[in-house]
């Protein structure tokens, strides 16, 4: 806030606002505050519900703060909640998601960055065609590719395993990540590349010694994009894994929407919050980089 105030002072534009509480300002802030309530309400409801006991929930004030806050629902959601016959809570889904997430990120970013580098600096005959197909592929509904991928994964004996899902995430993350890296590498001054070529560096030499160290910010953007995307995935998880290897989102849905037993809304909300926690933390920590990632993903892709 201080920064932006200083910036405005440095370059005054237009007439200075005369009153802080003009009618226009009241309208603007009033609207923004009202809309903020709509956006914040679900998060608030999740938090307060997850801290209440069931008797308090049955009183029926979903917006009321917890009278006797308890962390029991959180513990139960993490360690005891049941899906089918397994009663070891969301923790299994969490660790599955971690096991899926890490190799997916490494593999997809490695491949996409090399793709982007090749497309930006080492064009070969047909490279632009493949790239165009890749980008068009990002718009094809996943449903038309689901079953052929099942067949391919069965052929390489990875159907139902975590590594199969890793491959699927790598494939479907490729269009947007390749685009991201290609555009970034294209913006690096060509003289650098030429100088390295003159010094005798080859494809991999230039990639590891020049491009990689220069493009750390874009790698961070790509990681943010992939962490949230893969963590939040449900469709691929439910199709390409089996109950033992279900990622967190699939397990969460099974816990909350299971038909048997008494519904424990506080445990459900604790489980929902636990699942949302990873992308939320990433979001609040990364701030501007997150926005940059989705802007790159959105406007360009």
């Amino acid at each position: 806030m201080v920064d932006s105030a200083l910036n405005n002072a440095a370059e005054p534009r237009g007439p200075k606002p005369k009153r802080a509480f003009s009618r226009a300002n009241i309208f603007i802030y009033g609207t923004l505050l009202l809309v903020s309530i709509y956006y914040l309400l679900p998060l608030y409801v999740m938090i307060v519900t997850s801290l209440k006991g069931m008797p308090e929930i049955r009183l029926g004030n979903v917006f009321g703060p917890p009278l006797e806050p308890t962390f029991q629902p959180w513990i139960k959601a993490w360690a005891e909640a049941c899906t089918g016959i397994n009663c070891d809570g969301l923790s299994r889904g969490f660790w599955n998601s971690v096991k899926i997430l890490i190799p997916s990120i490494v593999l997809s970013i490695l491949i996409a960055s090399v793709n982007g580098y090749a497309l930006a600096n080492w064009k070969f005959k047909g490279s632009e065609t493949f790239f165009t197909i890749l980008i068009i592929g990002a718009f094809i509904p996943y449903q038309t590719m689901l079953y052929p991928i099942v067949i391919m994964l069965r052929e390489i004996k990875l159907m139902g395993s975590i590594w199969g899902l890793v491959l699927v995430h790598t494939v479907f993350g490729m269009p947007i990540l390749t685009l991201l890296f290609r555009n970034y590498f294209t913006s690096i001054p060509e003289e650098l590349f030429k100088a390295a070529r003159v010094d005798g560096a080859g494809f991999w030499g230039i990639y590891f010694k020049i491009m990689l160290p220069m493009s750390l910010p874009i790698f961070v953007v790509a990681i943010i994009l992939q962490v949230t995307g893969i963590w939040n995935d449900f469709l691929f998880g439910v199709i390409y894994t089996k109950p033992d290897t279900y990622p967190m989102t699939v397990q969460l849905n099974n816990i909350v929407n299971s038909v048997q037993g008494v519904k424990e809304y506080n445990v459900n909300m604790a489980a929902t919050l636990l699942t949302g926690l990873v992308p939320l933390v990433i979001y609040f920590i990364s701030g501007k980089l997150f926005v940059r990632g989705i802007a790159a993903g959105a406007v360009k892709g």
């Binding site: 989102t249 809304y265 909300m269």
Partner: peptide
């Protein structure tokens, strides 16, 4: 505030609104 829901999974969004 306006952008944070975008970081969440549709599953989380769906379950939360189902509860509300």
């Amino acid at each position: 505030i306006f952008l944070y829901p975008f970081a969440l999974s549709f599953i989380v969004t769906g379950l939360t609104w189902q509860w509300i």
